[in-house]
């Protein structure tokens, strides 16, 4: 790379990076909606367990845990959403710089004499100003995003275990067993949907960013 070429290859891929962040954000919105749904389902399950009485004590405890899980998930997704918003700010800056860089490269190609020297000096100053700075910022944000998705995956795994345990407890629910089984199956299915969304999120996040 010459001193006057783009300071980071990442700038060339800024548009692609922006599209990737938009996809991640859309997936986060899906998980947020589902987490809200789990919260409501858990509240219904708590009432059902109370009605079932002594035979559904274990199911009641698990329903409470599932509600806590849904609230933790909502908080985690809000943090993820903020992280993607931060990424949009950084990447939008990169998109703008990419355009400016492209125009200066075109100016350099057609300028001579003092004008050319001015463009060269300007490009060098830009390189010093931005070199590593913005692409480094995107890399750090990406690392943070990956860590958050990984933490979320662990949290959802816990939710999955809780849903399976609730299914087992439902079997001891006496006359309420069928209803409790239905509720715990719904939990299992909904958490499985979240896992699918997280897999998609991980896939989008792991798409190599050329920077």
């Amino acid at each position: 790379m010459s001193a006057l070429s783009l300071p980071a290859a990442s700038r060339q891929n800024a548009g692609q990076e922006l599209r990737r962040i938009v996809r991640i954000n859309e997936e986060i919105k899906k998980v947020v909606t589902t987490a809200f749904k789990i919260n409501l389902m858990a509240m219904n399950a708590i009432f059902l367990a109370k009605r079932a009485g002594q035979s559904a004590l274990g199911f009641g405890v698990l329903s409470n845990e599932l509600r806590r899980f849904a609230m933790d998930l909502q908080r985690q997704m809000e943090t993820l959403r903020i992280a993607t918003t931060d990424s949009v700010v950084v990447v939008t800056g990169l998109v703008k710089q990419t355009r400016v860089e492209r125009i200066f490269q075109r100016t350099l190609a057609v300028s001579k004499g003092q004008g050319r020297r001015m463009v060269e000096a300007c490009l060098r100053a830009r390189n010093d100003r931005y070199s590593g700075d913005e692409s480094g910022g995107v890399t750090a944000l990406n690392r943070r995003l990956s860590q958050m998705i990984s933490d979320t995956a662990q949290l959802v795994e816990l939710g999955s275990v809780l849903a399976r345990s609730a299914k087992i407890e439902a079997a001891y629910g006496g006359t309420f067993s069928t209803s409790l089984m239905q509720v715990s199956s719904d939990f299992e299915q909904t958490i499985s949907d979240i896992q699918k969304s997280l897999d998609t999120l991980t896939k989008h996040q792991s798409q190599e960013f050329a920077g």
Binding site: I103, A109, V110, S111, G113, G115, V119
Partner: peptide
């Protein structure tokens, strides 16, 4: 680019 090069 065209304006700058013509001007300079």
């Amino acid at each position: 680019p065209a304006v700058f090069s013509a001007l300079s």
